[in-house]
Design a protein around this nucleic acid. Structure first.
Lengths: 209, 209
DNA sequence: ATTATATACGGAGCAATGTTCCGTTTAACA
DNA sequence: TGTTAAACGGAACATTGCTCCGTATATAAT
C-alpha cells in the first residue's frame, strides 16, 4: 500500500528538463541510451517490457535507470514525448524539402507510424494510472499546430480542396491506424496513402486521365 | 512468457458450472466464501486487490483459491457474472412486488449500483486481457431481456410514455453512473432517480398540479 | 460404525518484476 | 594531480500471481 504518491513528486524525470541542465557527460550518455533502448524495446515487445530488459539493452544497470527515471512510467512518458516532438519537427522538415502535397502525404505516413506505435503503448496508458493523465491531450495539442501549415500550403498550392479540415483528417488517420496498425502495419500505411491521395485535386491545367 | 494460454482452457472455473456439479460440501463452502470475499474486496479495494487478500478474507488458503479459480481473472469474471445474474433476477422480483413504475424505478437504482460497481472493475477489464472478452457484451445481453418487461408493464399501465426506448434509458443511466459513481454514489443515485422520474406520465384522471 | 479413497485444503515456496540501497567508479574542476 | 560531488552497477528487497505436495476430510461401500 504505497498509495501516497502525489502527482508530480520531485524526482527530476531526466529527459523532461530539456536534457541540458548541467548533466555530466556519462549521465547524458546513459539517458540517451535508455531512451533509445526503451523506444526499441517498446516497439518490439510492447509496453509490458520489463525494466530489466530495457536496462540491459541500454547497457546500464538498474540503479542508473532508476536514477533518471524514478518510475517505470516515467520512461514511457519520456519516450512518448520524445516521439511526439520528433513527429512534430518532421512537419517543418518535410515542408522544406518537398512540394506541398508530397510533404503532407509524407507527414501523414509519419503520423500513422506514430499513432501505430503509440497504440502499442496506449493500452498501458489507459490503464487508469494517473501518471499518464493529460498525455493524450498534449499529444494532440502538440501535433495539431505542427500540421496546420502543411495543409495551408497544400491548399494555397491548389493541390487539395480548400475546405479540407485538418483536424478531421488527423482524426480519421489516427483511427484508421488505431485498429489496423498492430496486426498489419503495411496495410495501415496503404490505407493512409489511399486516404490522403483522395484529398488530392488535379492541379489546374493538367487534366489527369 | 507463458504466452500460450488458449481462450477457455479446461480448468473448470468453479462457479460457472452452475454450482451443483457434485461438489463436496466443503468445496461449495469455499467457493461461496471466496466469491463473497471477492465481492467485498473488489468493492472496497478495487480490482487490483491481491489474491492473498481475498483468500485471507475468505478464510481459505491459496491452494483452495486456485483450485476453484485457476486464474485471478476467473474470480473477477465469476463475481461479475454472479452480480449480473442477481441484477437480472431482481427485475422479476421487483415487478412482482411493486406497481409498474415503482418497480422500474427501483430496478434502475439497482442497475445503477451494478454499473457503479462494475466501473470499479471495468478498469481492469479493459486492460486488453482476452480473458475478459465478451463480458461486456454478455453483460448487456443478459440484462436487456430482463428489463424489457418492466418497461412494457409501465407502458401498459400508462405510467410512462409509450415510445420510451428501454435501451436508450439503460444506456443513459449507465453512462450517468460510469462517470459519477466512483466519487459520489449518493449523487449518482439521486441523478438516476431524477432521470427516471422524468419518464413518468401523470396517470389518467389524477391531474398532478 | 468402519474403512477406503477420491476430493479438497493449506500454506510454504517459486518465479517474475518493480524498486531501493549502497559500495565503487568517474567526470569535472581547482 | 587531487578532491569531490555526481553517477554507476547490480545484488538484494518487497510484492504478486501461481504451483506443489503433504495433510485432512467428506462420501460412500462394507
Amino acid at each position: 500500500m504505497s498509495g501516497v504518491r502525489s502527482k508530480g513528486d520531485q524526482a527530476e524525470t531526466a529527459a523532461d528538463t530539456g536534457g541540458d541542465r548541467r548533466l555530466r557527460a556519462d549521465a547524458k550518455r546513459s539517458i540517451d541510451a535508455l531512451m533509445q533502448a526503451a523506444r526499441e524495446v517498446f516497439a518490439s515487445s510492447g509496453v509490458d517490457a520489463t525494466v530489466r530488459e530495457i536496462a540491459e539493452r541500454a547497457g546500464v544497470g538498474m540503479g542508473t535507470l532508476y536514477r533518471h527515471f524514478p518510475q517505470r512510467a516515467d520512461l514511457i512518458t519520456a519516450v512518448l514525448h520524445s516521439e511526439m516532438d520528433a513527429c512534430s519537427d518532421a512537419a517543418a522538415t518535410l515542408a522544406a524539402k518537398h512540394p506541398p502535397f508530397e510533404a503532407l502525404a509524407a507527414w501523414m505516413q509519419r503520423y500513422a507510424d506514430l499513432v501505430g506505435t503509440k497504440r502499442g503503448l496506449a493500452k498501458a496508458l489507459n490503464s487508469g494510472d494517473p501518471v499518464f493523465e493529460g498525455l493524450l491531450t498534449r499529444f494532440e495539442e502538440r501535433l495539431r499546430p505542427a500540421v496546420r501549415p502543411l495543409f495551408a500550403a497544400a491548399i494555397v498550392a491548389g493541390e487539395i480542396e480548400p475546405d479540407t479540415d485538418a483536424d478531421e483528417i488527423l482524426c480519421a488517420v489516427s483511427s484508421l491506424c488505431m485498429s489496423a496498425y498492430d496486426a498489419k502495419p503495411e496495410h495501415a500505411r496503404r490505407m493512409v496513402a489511399l486516404f490522403i491521395d483522395g484529398l488530392r485535386r488535379p492541379v489546374k491545367g493538367s487534366s489527369s486521365h
